[in-house]
């Protein structure tokens, strides 16, 4: 069978098959984009605070210690569900204040413990960042993570 396969046949299979799978992949991407915007995320709730919170998250490269929906650096805790872990579902105001206070209290300086830098965020930046966490916690992630520990 291997001898029956000529080089040009192998080449045609490669180009044709790759194009075939690429088209399927692109089609599923379009569908998934629509699904994300209509079903799995709160597209309407994507307000200025959440968007600014996302930018705050990005410009301090938080992802290079933390994970967000399981993606990131594994050096520090998962934050996709930090809102839920801090009791945001029952007591939104309390969770917001606790998360902000935690960020502001860093670094702890405790010997032998991983240190989070102090990014000197303004109160508005902190609020926006927490809004971004709150928005992210409502994404339909197919029930991931398995528990609140993240």
């Amino acid at each position: 069978m291997w001898d029956a396969l000529t080089k040009s046949a192998a080449r045609n299979i490669f180009y044709g098959g790759s194009a075939f799978f690429l088209v399927i992949f692109l089609g599923l991407t379009v569908h998934s984009c629509n699904y994300a915007q209509s079903t799995s995320t709160d597209e309407k709730g994507l307000n200025a605070a959440v968007i600014n919170g996302k930018h705050t998250w990005e410009r301090h490269a938080c992802i290079n210690c933390h994970t967000l929906l399981g993606e990131g650096a594994y050096f520090a805790p998962e934050l996709g569900n930090v809102w839920k872990r801090y009791g945001g579902l029952k007591d939104p105001q309390g969770a917001r204040e606790t998360i902000k206070a935690f960020i502001k209290s860093q670094p702890s300086g405790t010997p032998g413990r991983r240190q989070m830098p102090n990014f000197k965020l303004t109160d508005k930046e902190l609020d926006d960042l927490v809004s971004f966490f709150e928005w992210t916690s409502r994404i339909n992630t197919q029930n991931w993570p398995p528990n609140d520990a993240g």
Partner: peptide
């Protein structure tokens, strides 16, 4: 050609293993 055919046939849709828990279908 046989190797790269296998790469793209599996790798393109294999992207799906990153789409389990990030809000995708």
């Amino acid at each position: 050609y046989a190797i790269v055919a296998l790469s793209l046939f599996t790798g393109l849709l294999g992207t799906g293993h990153h789409y389990y828990w990030i809000g995708t279908p």
